[in-house]
Simulated scan of single mutants.
Amino acid sequence: MATPAKEAAAAGKRDELADSLAELFTNVSLMVRGELQGTNSQLALLEKMNQRVAEEYSSYGDVASGLRVFVEQLNEKNQGFEEYTSQIDAIDHQVTEFEAVVSMLDKHVSVLEKKVKSAYHVAPTQ
């Protein structure tokens, strides 16, 4: 039979073991709780970041939509100006041709002027 001292020592070891196990479970539960809180904090931060990005892209969508309307209006105005640009091109072509004709006439006039001057100088001396 076990003596009361041995039974008390065995009970003390069981109490120490139970206390150690209880402390272990408490510490493990605190650690798991801390990990879960950290994960929850990260997820909350990620959610806030996603909301911020969604807001920013939403405003980009509004800007892009406005730009699309602006480009369409510019295209309509450009089509209205195409008639005028074709007229300007035609006028530019005509001016270039006119300049060539004026240059030819200038050369002709210059030649005629020389002939008249030479005829004028030759006639009075004879």
Rank of each mutant, 00 (worst) to 15 (best):
N75G: 03
N75M: 04
M31P: 01
N50I: 02
V71S: 10
N75T: 09
G80M: 11
T26P: 01
T26G: 11
F70R: 12
H93C: 02
Y60W: 12
K114A: 14
R33M: 09
Q94G: 03
L74M: 12
S20K: 03
V116I: 15
L74W: 07
V53H: 05
K77Y: 09
E82M: 08
K107S: 14
V101W: 00
E76G: 02
Y120V: 15
M49A: 14
I91F: 07
V71W: 06
D19T: 04
S86H: 05
Q37S: 14
V32K: 15
E56I: 12
L30P: 00
D15T: 02
E16I: 10
Q37I: 13
T39W: 10
H93S: 14
L24R: 05
V63M: 10
S58D: 13
V109L: 15
S59M: 11
E56R: 08
E82R: 11
Q42A: 14
E55F: 00
E55C: 00
V32G: 05
A18T: 13
A90T: 15
L74G: 01
M31I: 07
I88T: 03
Q79C: 01
Y84T: 11
V63K: 08
A90W: 08
R14S: 04
K107A: 08
Q51W: 00
A54S: 12
K77G: 03
S110T: 05
D62R: 13
N40L: 09
V71L: 13
Y57R: 14
L112T: 10
D89M: 03
N50D: 06
S59R: 12
T96F: 00
E83K: 09
E56W: 02
S29C: 02
L43T: 09
Q79H: 06
T39P: 01
G38L: 12
L45S: 14
S118M: 15
